[in-house]
Design a protein around this nucleic acid. Sequence first.
RNA 1: AGGCGCGUAGCUCAGUUGGUUAGAGCGCUACCUUGACAUGGUAGAGGUCACCAGUUCGAAUCUGGUCGUGCCUACCA
Length: 927
Amino acid sequence: MDKTYQPQSLEAHWYQTWESRGYFAPQGHGTPYCIVIPPPNVTGRLHMGHGFQHAIMDALTRYHRMLGCQTLWQVGTDHAGIATQMVVERQLNAAGTNRQAIGRDQFVQKVWEWKEESGDIITQQLRRMGSSLDWSRERFTMDAQLSKVVEKVFIDLYNEGLIYRGNRLVNWDPQLLTAISDLEVISEEETGSLWHFRYPLAAGAKTADGKKYIVIATTRPETMLGDTAVAVHPDDERYKNLIGKRIALPLCDREIPIIADAYVDREFGTGCVKITPAHDFNDYEVGKRHDLEIINILTNNAAINENAPAAYQGLDRFDARKLITRDLEALGLVDKIVPHQLKVPRGDRSGVIIEPYLTHQWYVTVQSLADPAIRAVEDGSIEFVPKNWENTYFAWMRNLQDWCISRQLWWGHRIPAWYAEDGAVYVGSSEAEVRKQHKIPAATALRQDEDVLDTWFSSALWTFSTLGWPDDREFFDKFHPTDVLVTGFDIIFFWVARMIMMTLKFTGEIPFKKVYITGLVRDEHGQKMSKSKGNILDPIDLIDGITLDELVRKRTADMMQPQLKKEIEKLTRNSFPDGIAAYGTDAVRFTFYSLAATGRDIKFDLNRTEGFRNFCNKIWNAARYVLMNCEDKPAAQVPDPQYLSVADKWISSRFEQVAADMENAMANYRFDLASQTLHEFIWNEYCDWYVELSKPVLWDAENNPAQAEATRYVLLTVLEKSLRLLHPFMPFITEEIWQRVAPLMAITGDSIMLQPYPRYDASKVDKDAEQSIEWIKSVIIAIRNIRGEMDISLGKTIDVFLTKGSPADRQRLEAYRLYLQKLAKLSSITWLEAGKKAPASATQLHGDLEILVPLAGLIDVAAEQARLQKEIGKLEGALNAVSSKLGNAKFVDNAPVEVVAKEKEKQQQMSGSIAALRAKLEQLAAI
RNA sequence: AGGCGCGUAGCUCAGUUGGUUAGAGCGCUACCUUGACAUGGUAGAGGUCACCAGUUCGAAUCUGGUCGUGCCUACCA
């Protein structure tokens, strides 16, 4: 074995072995356990969120597989409509063409080509993470079978009247030229202006204070071209007299009415609101209430259209804004322009400002779907972990808007609807089907809807469409409902809620029993990771390492805003002056587990990854030690219990407690506690103590072969069981070591991943052994403490005396003398009878037991006095607290007896210690 | 404006129904290349648990408030 752990050399090998042998597919006859992967974008790349969530899903999957469940982690990808189409369009643009030029069929063909070309990047990355996904069942949202389900669901919902086509305002992305759902609009506060314009009153009307105009305020001046009213509050005394009068809309040859509507906030601005029903959601509602004209003044790419005055036609919306402001200025109609903070809606993909835009779109009526979905969570059929996310779910579900499912894209599931010349709509699985069903003669032309469905529409069907519903029900019947969905809170609305609604509607089953909501992975400063911030990390780069230059190049490639490059480069060079080291998959995964606490932010700290890389190395070397001592010997046999040392019994006992803790942590999705438990046990108990305690036994093998044999057996078994305990979290290193350890124990299995997970076994618990080892550790630590504080090098062996302890202490000294001598580097350790005079010494206490290291030229008296003083000070502080507690009659009367007893014992213990230490001080002073 | 979360060691975080001398990892200090491991070992320093008030015999933990901070939802043109 190498002296240090080298993950690179073995990860690919083991993954390939597992996959090619079919270990990831469900097997056996245990209870089915299923997780479906939240489908990543087929042409996307792994980010830290994926890394985190997949680490968790894999731990759950491997854990249940080892528990003997028939385990399926269903894999697949989604087609990511907008994102993928954008990428291919950019490629076309770079090649000097565009999708319109090549036409729909050829464009879709190009996307498929791109999918084939790049689609395995993400799946290869999933493999690098060690994910035990069943690749034989890989699915894609645009597969024929899944598409069929999408079509069926659409048609069924339509036939039930739950899908309809409506002409309404939608969020329009003028760059991508498609509607997007309100969830895909990100509104952020930006600094803009509030323009105050004077709108002249028509027909000589005047305001209450005699002005010939009223002042309206707007954040989007260009929309004034589409104004069809000005609204005031019905009870606003300032304008009451103007209600019903008219305004001569400037720049437009048009008069518009002044209307009263309670929607107006009298406090804001001037209390007069321009109403543009075609370009504002609130105004649209006002317009409906007052039966106002709706004038659309924008083209689909947000230029001014032919409904506006000729002077502005063809101008981009922001050029029009400038020109309109200038023209109004020239007319003396600009009252003022003030800086204004406003929420600007931007498309989450394109980043451009979204326009409310009047179009025909398809909608799902969600209310009737929502009710059962709410109930499923209310009655506990579906549980969120942590539970408080249920509130978020309820809040959204109880205030649902109809879901706009059509997208003006070419990449996706085409809407199965056909239009006749007369505008009639027919929905069906194909044109032929539609003709047949509605008896439409061939002479009547039918045209299929140009649009495709929102990607989330197909994702909402994911748990049952991937499992073969409705026709091929073997897997569906076995694995649905799935056990747990692991995902981030940012898509509770997008995906989780819609999945619950659709799955209940169509299968009558919930899609999953639990929803484990993970935090969001942030950078080391708590910033959200994003391309534009330039702080993204690729989990693969943590696994393989990356040079600084390469990292900078990656972070600044394909920027939407190239001007940020310099800043990002600086930040990156600052954060990673030496690039990133190769930590290996196991260390990266373990970092994720350690951070998977209940909070909603996960600040990713590479220092922790480094710590876990070291942990891997620690495990590696512990295994090296065990193997060096056990190889070339006959396979370990269960030893006769009489040869087991106290250390052997202790570590076996401790292991059982750890197994119990693991079960508890996994049941509660506390991967942080699980990782901590494993780290603590393996490093601080097995390596630091058990391995050290085994050395005196193994080094003395010639004199006590049976004991040495027993210790080898325990070294091996606890290592082997610990590897199994650890395997769901660190699959690679555990497999590599296990393959070497298993033969020494005559274990015949092919892979650790198919071995049983260790369960708590009460018969191995040995409290006496645990207490004895605690005693041994305490005495050794006491001596080491004196060494450390007194600067006595470990190279120097010393003499130690024990005195004033109980008969049990004395027995232990005799029984465990060897351990004490070796681990504390003692030349002798002697029990001093109570009456006998001790030499001047440095002293440590363990209960009543005094541990004495004679000064004998080693120790400076003053230093020991200072050390004792410090110790006494500490104890006195603690004693004061305890004594005042016990002096309080209310405490003694009210607290449970066992608490009071405990405090009394502490008090006695501490005052005893203080007295003993004082005596030592006096003794030293007398020298 | 509502809702949710967070504030514990220099940093990243645990602390399960109120009772520990408040913990871990990293970092820091000192010493140590000893036969698994310097990606290591041993010892140590470091916290008024944001603040205030309350409940209680007892609060990091429960209640109310304040301050700071982050996110989500809805929005004022």
